[in-house]
Simulated assay, not measured.
Amino acid sequence: MTALYQLATPLPEAERNARIYRGELIVFRGFDAMARLTDQLRAHCVSHLGSEPTCVHQWMSSIEIEQATEALRAAIRKDSDMDLAWCQVLSAIHTDLDETYGDGVVLRVQPPCSGAKGERLEPLRAHRDTWGSNLPAQINWWAPLFDTTPERTLALFPGSFTRIIDNDSADWDFQDMVHAHRGKNTSGYPLLPTATKAPSWDDALVISLLPGDLLCFSGAHLHASVPNTTSVTRLSFETRTVNRSDMATGSGAPNVDGSAPFMTPQIFRHLKSGRKLGELERK
Rank of each mutant, 00 (worst) to 15 (best):
P150S: 10
Y101H: 14
S91F: 03
D32Q: 15
C113L: 14
S80W: 10
D129C: 05
A75Y: 03
F157V: 02
M60A: 07
I76P: 04
G132K: 01
L121F: 03
D213E: 08
V105E: 00
L90P: 03
G50I: 07
A137G: 05
T162L: 07
F28I: 09
S114N: 10
R108L: 03
G212C: 07
T148P: 12
W131N: 03
V89P: 00
K184H: 12
T54Q: 12
T100G: 08
C45F: 03
L37A: 04
S187C: 06
R269P: 01
Q138Y: 01
T264P: 07
H223I: 01
W201P: 13
L280E: 12
S259W: 09
H270Q: 11
A14D: 13
V206G: 04
N140C: 13
R240Q: 09
L192T: 11
L210K: 13
G104N: 07
P265Q: 04
R19M: 13
E13S: 10
R240A: 07
G132F: 00
F146K: 04
K276Y: 10
S208T: 14
A253G: 09
G23D: 06
L4N: 03
S236F: 00
E279D: 15
A180W: 00
R108D: 08
T69V: 09
T230P: 01
P53R: 01
S245I: 11
A74Y: 09
T162Q: 14
L90T: 02
Q138R: 13
E281H: 14
F28K: 01
L280W: 09
I165N: 11
G132P: 09
F157E: 06
S61A: 09
Q40K: 13
D166T: 13
H179A: 12
L214I: 12
F157M: 06
L210Y: 06
V178T: 12
S169E: 08
I65S: 02
V256P: 11
V46P: 07
G258L: 00
R240S: 09
V206C: 05
A33P: 09
G115Y: 08
P10A: 01
H127P: 10
P190K: 06
Q40A: 12
P12E: 08
S62I: 04
L205E: 11
E70M: 12
L271V: 14
S169A: 08
D79C: 04
A3W: 06
R29L: 03
M82L: 11
K272T: 10
I26W: 03
R282C: 05
S273Y: 11
I20T: 14
A137Q: 09
P199W: 08
E151M: 06
G115K: 08
A14N: 12
A224S: 15
N167H: 06
L215W: 02
I207H: 01
S218G: 06
N140G: 15
G102Q: 10
Q138K: 11
P211F: 06
G104F: 00
L209P: 00
A74T: 13
V105S: 02
Q67R: 12
